[in-house]
Computed example of a mutant assay.
Amino acid sequence: MARRPTIKDIARRAGVSESAVSFALNDRPGVSRDTRARIRRVAEELGWQANSAARALSGERSGAVGLVLARPAHTLGVESFFLQLVSGIQEVLSAARTALLFQVVEDVDAECAVYRRWWAERRVDGVLVVDPRTGDPRPALLAELGLPAVTIGEPGPPTGTGTSPVSAVRADDAGAMAQVLEHLHGLGHRRIVHIAGLPGLAHTVRRMESLRAEAERRGLGPDHVRSVVTDYSDAEGAAATRRVLAEPRPPTALVYDNDVMAVAGSAVAAELGIPVPHRLSIVAWDDSALCRVTHPRLTALVRDTAGFGRLAAEELLSVLAGGPAGVRESERPRLEPRESTAQAPAHTDS
């Protein structure tokens, strides 16, 4: 059929009344088992699907969940993390015959506006919330709207009091950063710079705090170990690398918050004639093909990002089925040393 089939079309083809079709397709009593089966068979033959707007008006589910990403679009072009995350989410949702409604916006205010619109239009049954922030306004808004949600990453402190609990799946960012510093410190590095991501993100704050605490535990102050923030892009990663390598006492090791910045930083070092790893060691957060094809191959934190997405989608489906809010822990990223890290250069000032 050239147009969308209707209940009237199904009734005509099956030789029954429109009310019988409605009863059969909505699992309501009033038709025999054989008639119900015939109606459903005809509906499948015609390619009929329930109208999501009509389902919403009747109080039924929309059959979709939402994901809004509030980041500048130019920072997403080559970063593999979100592609892997979404692939894991989609794997679970597809098996549950649930659609994923995805949108990219510029900031959190725009993201909140999307949630309000989706709620008003009954477009989604729940949402997956990424990039938890310090002073995050989203949990309170979602609780106010009554829109079920799962946060991907450990939430930061809420903006107010009395916010209803929101389910979350989290990764141990602090423990992962401790692994990185232990590795570099064991190689003799005492001047380490963390090229971090966006400063308002809760996981960025946790990584920075963990780096500082682990450094202090080893007697290293901010003159030796510190973080600088960027927007996750290759351009800002390269610019930050140039700045710190031009300092009078440059670092002997750099830790990047994503693979894209790490590769960009490695290229800057090569351009400046600084050999990796003989004079500069490099570590990337979140392994990817980029880390493995770069020469030298980059030491990286390895984790199952698609599995992280699957865990989040499973938790949201559980919440939608009436399960309690809770926090689920993903596996801790593990450090895989490769050719980009080595003993700190000899004869460097501490």
Rank of each mutant, 00 (worst) to 15 (best):
A300M: 07
L76T: 01
E121P: 01
P199R: 09
A96T: 00
S350R: 15
R133Y: 00
T294C: 15
R206Y: 05
D34L: 14
R41I: 05
R97N: 09
A95F: 07
E216Q: 12
R12T: 12
D173H: 15
R310K: 09
P29W: 01
A215P: 03
E216W: 09
A284I: 07
A110L: 14
L201F: 13
T348S: 05
A174M: 10
G47S: 11
V129N: 02
A174L: 14
L254F: 02
P137G: 12
V263T: 09
G88E: 11
V104T: 09
A264W: 07
R41H: 09
V21G: 06
H295K: 15
E111K: 04
S22Y: 00
H347K: 11
C291R: 07
R207A: 05
A267D: 14
D287V: 08
G146A: 12
V268W: 10
A239F: 03
G219Q: 11
M1V: 03
P296W: 11
D125Y: 01
A168S: 12
D109L: 13
M1I: 00
L142A: 06
G15P: 00
F23C: 07
G200T: 14
E154G: 12
G47Q: 01
K8S: 13
M208G: 13
W285E: 08
P29M: 07
G153C: 07
A37M: 08
T204F: 07
R191Y: 01
R191T: 03
T348K: 04
V283M: 01
A120T: 04
G47A: 13
T134K: 13
P333S: 08
L128G: 02
I7E: 11
I195E: 00
T98F: 03
R117D: 15
T75G: 07
V130T: 14
R3T: 08
I10C: 02
R13G: 09
S318N: 13
E331P: 02
R28P: 13
D234Q: 14
W285T: 03
G237S: 13
R242M: 10
A346I: 10
E182T: 11
G15D: 05
T252Y: 01
S80A: 15
D109R: 07
Q179K: 10
T252P: 01
R328G: 06
V42R: 04
A54V: 10
